[in-house]
């Protein structure tokens, strides 16, 4: 049986949820999410240091999602919007959790998984060196991404990237990434 996205989305919505969304990930949606989360963090009087980290990591998470969604074939369009993704920002056990989910073609999994595994083995200093190396040597891709997003998230949060791939159908997996920011 294929992975049920609706069930997973409901699971993510447990705990103290600041914002949850599933649907098309557009530039306007990103603006709205950033505005909403920023004002909530201000209302909660979150310390500016944590607030900035959450905001920064949220920007990277959303833009990673925006740049890397693989669209399902047309026959799925009644179930899933174009550029479908999910996003949940919540707080649990004293830390902020940002989860994103998107479809990924099976052929794209290996490269992404290798990158995440590599990042998860690196120390803070090694992440800094990797960030600087990519910054200085790699060109921006056509999609506008620089290959720096995940490295930046790992570096700023100081936590390992928590990820999973769930088989959706023969050609696609659903990729879920959760990142944590300690209060």
């Amino acid at each position: 049986m294929s992975f049920n996205i609706q069930d997973y989305y409901s699971e993510l919505n447990e705990g103290e949820v600041l914002l949850a969304y599933k649907g098309s990930i557009s530039s306007e949606l990103i603006n709205n999410v950033l505005d909403t989360v920023e004002s909530k963090l201000q209302d909660f009087n979150v310390h500016s240091k944590v607030r900035k980290k959450v905001y920064n990591v949220l920007v990277e998470s959303l833009q990673n999602l925006y740049h890397h969604i693989d669209d399902l074939p047309k026959n799925y369009e009644k179930d899933f919007d174009e550029r479908f993704g999910i996003l949940v920002v919540s707080k649990e056990a004293g830390r902020y959790k940002i989860s994103t989910g998107n479809f990924i073609k099976n052929s794209h999994i290996t490269k992404l998984e290798e990158k995440i595994k590599k990042i998860n083995t690196l120390s803070k200093d090694e992440l800094k060196e990797m960030y600087k190396y990519i910054l200085n040597h790699q060109k921006l891709s056509d999609k506008g991404g620089g290959g720096l997003g995940l490295v930046d998230i790992a570096r700023k949060t100081g936590h390992k990237l928590d990820y999973r791939f769930r088989a959706f159908n023969e050609e696609y997996n659903f990729f879920i990434l959760s990142v944590y920011i300690s209060d």
């Binding site: 900035k52 920064n56 920007v59 833009q63 910054l135 200085n136 921006l140 991404g145 620089g146 720096l148």
Partner: peptide, 12 residues
């Protein structure tokens, strides 16, 4: 105040 990784290359 904030900059994303896409901007970081342009700033460089």
């Amino acid at each position: 105040e904030y900059f994303n990784t896409s901007s970081s290359k342009c700033i460089l």
